[in-house]
Design a protein around this nucleic acid. Sequence first.
DNA 1: AGTGGCCCCTGGCGGC
DNA 2: TGCCGCCAGGGGCCAC
Length: 270
Amino acid sequence: MPELPEVETIKRQLQKRLRGETILDVKVFFEKIIFSVSDSTFIKDLKKQRVQEISRRGKYLIFKLTDYYMLVHLRMSGKFLIKEKDSINQKHEHIHFIFNNFILAYHDVRKFGRIYLVKDPSIILDKLGIEPLSEKFTLLEFKKILKGTKSIKAFLLDQSEIAGLGNIYVDEALFLAKIAPKRLISAIYDDEAALLHHAIIKVLKKGIDNMGTSLGKGKSNYKNIESLGKNQNELLVFNRENEPCINCKNPIKKIRVAQRGTHYCPFCQK
DNA sequence: AGTGGCCCCTGGCGGC
DNA sequence: TGCCGCCAGGGGCCAC
């Protein structure tokens, strides 16, 4: 579920609530969420750790602690909840981080999320490509990495190329750039690359301004710490199959590209 | 190198 | 109402 704008929103909220707070205890209810250490080590090492800083790289949340880094990837349905002290764990809450005045609960319906506890985060984060909202993501740099023989959609979803884009924002960016998702990278012109570069930054910034995209109605729906996002109300193609294209009024089509449901306008995107 | 298939899970929805 | 198959915002692995 969560892509860069959703993770960024959660990061900002966690930063406000957790910075400077100390983990007093940890309770693990489903240990398969924890990677890189055993659950007993995880609990032992986290006790007395103070949260110094929370940041983001791609779709990873990075908790900088006194002696460790805790990296969290929410995958499809992971989320964090702030609960009252001494409240019991509800269904789908797999880990409780107990602080002085509240509990931070990791909730994940589909259980795909991963939490790593490491001394050196580079082992995991070095695999990620460029950060699309950083100053390094220039048009020149984008053109430099835009190579290979795959489809443009598969390229944009590849976290080792650009870190943080997911299915929603890729479809939205390709629509803005008027490029069909199946188009091969080798067939993209310079002026289109410039449009796409601009579109990627635009859709991500809008997503953050709207505090993320909340689709669907179920318990696995994206929710930041405080509320649902608002970006679902402003999507141009994603989740709009058969609805009219905002440019040409022809129906938006849904096809399969790179094993993902893909929304686009066959008339506007060539 | 790139793609497609399958897997990790649970739940919601549409069709019958 | 119930059952069944399909779908889902992510990503790792494996065979071709």
